[in-house]
C-alpha cells in the first residue's frame, strides 16, 4: 500500500464529520431563522449561529492534524449539503470550501492551539458574509456588512473555536489511543510559511490595489466608448477645475431644496477624453447597471452638470434635469 498524505482513517474521520455537518446544517439554518424571528429582524441575527457550520471543520482539522484537512472537509460538507438540497445550491459548496480554506491557512500560520482555533473559526465563519455579499448583496453598505461579519466572527470564535477545542479535548479523553492521538502539527518549514505569507499578502495587495476602494482615495470612474483616449480617473485628478453650483432636486416624490454642490463639470472630464466625431449620446452608468442617457451636445454645453463625491461614491448632479437623472454610484460614462 502506498503511503498517502491522508491515511484511510483520516479520510473516514473527515467523511463522517462532514456527513454529520451536512445533516446538521438544516437544523442550524432553522436555528438562525428562529433567532431572526426572535429578535424581530428579517436577517443578520442568524449569523450568530454561523460558527456551528465551521465547528465540524475545526473537529476534522484537530483530529487529523494535517494542512488541507479543513478545506477537504469543507468541500465534502458543502457537497453533501448540495446533494441533500441546500437552499443555496452550488453556492454552499463554495462557501463551505472557502471556510475550510480560511481555517486551514490560519491554523497553518498560527498553529493548532486555542488561539489558532479561535481565530481560524472566527475568520472562517465570517468569510461566508463576504461570499454572500459578492453574490447577492452588492448594494449593502459596509457598515452593515461589518456588523454581521463581526456577529459571525464572534459566533465562530465561540462555537467553532472555543466549543470545538473543548470537544476535541473531550474526544482525546474518551478515545485516548486509537482515534485522536492528535498528531502533532507538522513541522512547517520556514520557506513554506514564507511562500504562504507572500501569497496571502499578494492576494491582499491585489484586493486593496484593484478591487477595494479605500474611502480616502475616492471612487474611480471610467470614460469609454467612442472617445479618442478612454480614461479612468478619480475626482481628485480634476481638482483644479472644481466648481460649486446651486441646484434643486425635484423628483416625483423626493424634493431637496436648493443647496450648494461642489464637483467637477462633466464637460471638463469629457474634454480630456475627447469624444469622437459623430458621437451623439453620453450614458451615465452606475455600479449596479442603472443608467441614464444624455444628448452629448447638451452635456458639452452644460455648466450645471457636475460629478461630486458623496460618501464613497460618485454622484451626478444634473441641475437642469429631474431627480431621476441624478445618478448615484456613477462608475462609467459611455459615449456613443
Amino acid at each position: 500500500m502506498k503511503s498517502y498524505r491522508f491515511s484511510n482513517r483520516d479520510l473516514l474521520v473527515i467523511a463522517v464529520l462532514s456527513g454529520i455537518g451536512g445533516v446538521m446544517s438544516t437544523y442550524i439554518g432553522y436555528l438562525g431563522n428562529l433567532l431572526n424571528n426572535l429578535l424581530g429582524v428579517p436577517f443578520g441575527a442568524g449569523q450568530f449561529v454561523a460558527g456551528l457550520h465551521v465547528f465540524w471543520l475545526v473537529l476534522a482539522a484537530g483530529l487529523v492534524g494535517r494542512p488541507g484537512t479543513a478545506a477537504l472537509a469543507g468541500l465534502l460538507k458543502g457537497t453533501v449539503e448540495l446533494l441533500t438540497g441546500s437552499t443555496h445550491g452550488v453556492a454552499i459548496v463554495l462557501v463551505s470550501l472557502i471556510q475550510g480554506a480560511v481555517l486551514d491557512v490560519v491554523l497553518y500560520v498560527v498553529g493548532e492551539g486555542s488561539l489558532g482555533y479561535a481565530l481560524g473559526g472566527g475568520l472562517a465563519a465570517a468569510s461566508n458574509v463576504a461570499v454572500f455579499q459578492i453574490l447577492y448583496f452588492s448594494g449593502a453598505p459596509w457598515g452593515y456588512l461589518l456588523f454581521i461579519s463581526v456577529l459571525a466572527l464572534i459566533s465562530g470564535i465561540l462555537f467553532a473555536g472555543s466549543f470545538g477545542k473543548g470537544v476535541l479535548d473531550l474526544i482525546r479523553v474518551v478515545q485516548p489511543t486509537r482515534l485522536a492521538a492528535g498528531r502533532a502539527p507538522n513541522k512547517r518549514s520556514l520557506a513554506l510559511s514564507a511562500v504562504l505569507l507572500v501569497l496571502f499578502s499578494a492576494g491582499a495587495l491585489y484586493y486593496f490595489a484593484s478591487v477595494y476602494q479605500p474611502p480616502w482615495a475616492g471612487p474611480e470612474c471610467r470614460v469609454e466608448g467612442a472617445v479618442e483616449s478612454p480614461i479612468s480617473f478619480q475626482l481628485s485628478r480634476f481638482a483644479s477645475q472644481e466648481k460649486t453650483i446651486s441646484a434643486e432636486l425635484k423628483g416625483q416624490v423626493t424634493y431637496v431644496a436648493p443647496q450648494d454642490y461642489t464637483g467637477v463639470p462633466i464637460k471638463a472630464i469629457l474634454a480630456e477624453a475627447r469624444p469622437k466625431e459623430g458621437a451623439e449620446t453620453v450614458r451615465v452608468v452606475a455600479t449596479d447597471g442603472y443608467e441614464v442617457p444624455f444628448p452629448l451636445a447638451d452635456v458639452l454645453n452644460d455648466d450645471d452638470m457636475i460629478l461630486i463625491q458623496e460618501d464613497d461614491t460618485l454622484r451626478l448632479i444634473a441641475a437642469n434635469y429631474a431627480g431621476g437623472y441624478w445618478v448615484r454610484q456613477v462608475s462609467r460614462l459611455v459615449i456613443e
Binding site: N33, P42, G139, A140, P141, G324, V327, Q329
Partner: peptide, 27 residues
Amino acid sequence: GRSRRIISFSVMILLVQTLFVRQGAPL
C-alpha cells in the same frame, strides 16, 4: 420544496438592495 426559506431569502435580498441602493428615479 423548502419554498418558505427560498422566498424569505429572496425577500431579504430584495429588501437589502432596494433599501441601500439609492439610484435611478425615486419611486
